[in-house]
Design a protein around this nucleic acid. Sequence first.
DNA 1: TCATCGTGAGGAACCGGTTCCACACCCGAG
DNA 2: CTCGGGTGTGGAACCGGTTCCTCACGATGA
Lengths: 331, 331
Amino acid sequence: MRRTRQVTILSVAAAAGVSKSTVSRVMNETPNVDPQIVTRVRDAAARLGYRPSGTAQNLSRGRTGIVGVLVPDLANPLFATILKGISAEAEQDGYRTLVADANEQPGEELRHLNELARQSDGLILCGPRMSTPELAGLAELDVPIVLVNRKPDRNLFPSVTVDSQEAVMDLCRHLDGFGHTSLCYLGGPSHAAAEADRWSALQSSIRSRTKLYRVPAGAMLDDGHAAAEAALATGATCLIGFNDLVALGAVARLQELGIAVPGQISVAGFDDIVYARFTLPGLTTVAMPQTEFGQEAWRLLSPYLHSRKTRRTRTLSAHLVIRGSTGPRRN
Amino acid sequence: MRRTRQVTILSVAAAAGVSKSTVSRVMNETPNVDPQIVTRVRDAAARLGYRPSGTAQNLSRGRTGIVGVLVPDLANPLFATILKGISAEAEQDGYRTLVADANEQPGEELRHLNELARQSDGLILCGPRMSTPELAGLAELDVPIVLVNRKPDRNLFPSVTVDSQEAVMDLCRHLDGFGHTSLCYLGGPSHAAAEADRWSALQSSIRSRTKLYRVPAGAMLDDGHAAAEAALATGATCLIGFNDLVALGAVARLQELGIAVPGQISVAGFDDIVYARFTLPGLTTVAMPQTEFGQEAWRLLSPYLHSRKTRRTRTLSAHLVIRGSTGPRRN
DNA sequence: TCATCGTGAGGAACCGGTTCCACACCCGAG
DNA sequence: CTCGGGTGTGGAACCGGTTCCTCACGATGA
């Protein structure tokens, strides 16, 4: 279907009695145009209701002004917040964000990215769940790419990551102070970089007398809900979710089972999504620098859009937020 | 900057020893192409790493395959969920979503829309906060538009709205049963259609003996937080937030003030965002059909993208969800 | 054997802008 | 009076595809 746009630059040119080059110059506020002609063209454009075709501009300018953002799950407030951060920054530079939501299905990611790449000047991948070779293959897309919360293979892409080690040690110290000597980690998606990070940070942070279990869960509310009982079965007195959603899902299950938090069992998470403080008890969690993630991602990508020079990595740091969901070991 | 794409359709044509028309036919799987040539072109394309320019395709096809979505605030899980609903549906028809977040600033909306319209085949406006004349002016954008949760002026655009009347009456009955005879509504953004709807539904649903106050708040967590004290000052025994975020914000403030919910004061909201059940007490709320909003929006928009015929309105219905934040009047 | 038809490929127009280049014009300086 | 340079405009190429139109060719039926 060839949708015929009624009013193109040619219509305006004709109406104003000038060439289309001149109309283009007027619309782009190029200097050295006769003021009389400027007003004549402006008038004609307004009268006809002319609005330049973004698509045509994209083609001739060789850029779209769009940055594609891939997120694992938009329902996760973490990513919604990161996305807001990106949009806010990008917008100041005249870019908009094209969002693809992979719904926590790693297979979806590549499909989305292939599409995104064809419409955008650059890509930001938030916590991609794809495998390392797949990630490396993205270099072929021939588009600037920045990773958020995932270390790039062989430093292939600029990335903004977080160092949770310190905060996790704080968490372990906090739990140890409450007398917890057996913890159960509710594991996230296997290819998520955060998963490996968090798990290894936990392993290296616990005291030798502490037992650390791991039960596979996932990244969404339901995953935590489903994994809670398996975690209970380990006998651990504290559950640590891969992220806050998993932790909240587990809390919900515990409450259904009539188990008090933190009375009978403590729970902690990762991310510090906005709603972690509204749960009662509030959720103890390792807070990610969410808005900064977005800001920094843009700052890495933005120069990269104009020249291919930049290729840096930025590491932010997490911090522990203690709320009511963790307490003294009871049994 | 004229970014020279290394490999265009011409490169492939040359490499395969055919014309660019033929390459185009092969890439689009047009019938009636010699199988030998097909493989020759395929090979050449693969060897050169050819990927068609989406921008060029957009221009010559006369469509972008992008639908623009405007949301007041992406941090509001309501809109994140609606957006997921839209994306999921649109994707099946080969469309992607370009998101603009107005950050609850009505002035931003028009600016965003002007930009969005130039890149997309259609627009979905979620709970736009702009004024009625502004909304009507959008017809000039000359792009199919569908409204979510806002009734269109003079039936100008197809829309999917919700009828909360019934559910609000349920809420009022519920509160009346608990002996609450003075309620305070924490009002939302003045131009939000939901604001007018909810306020008038409340007014028409309360019993004659019940007093109904209104304190201006907003649509975000902080707004509820800030408005809580003013609401308390009315002497009402139950607060009803414009949405769940406002309600949650108010709850947080009440807790800071050492006021028990629902012990000393009850709180209810609108929307039923995912996290409303994880707060403790869980939030009593008038639930919106969130995923359906997205689905229906796409179903209204989709036929409208091809022909200009459709122009319908779809009304969904809300329902009351009772949780722990409402209880018997105490004082 | 010749007219006809279907198949498959190339050429060119087109989508709607941006921008390079050439040129006409006017001014002031030599 | 002529030459040089700056200013303002139109024409044409270009961005990278899609698609219409034309035509050559081989097979088929009369």
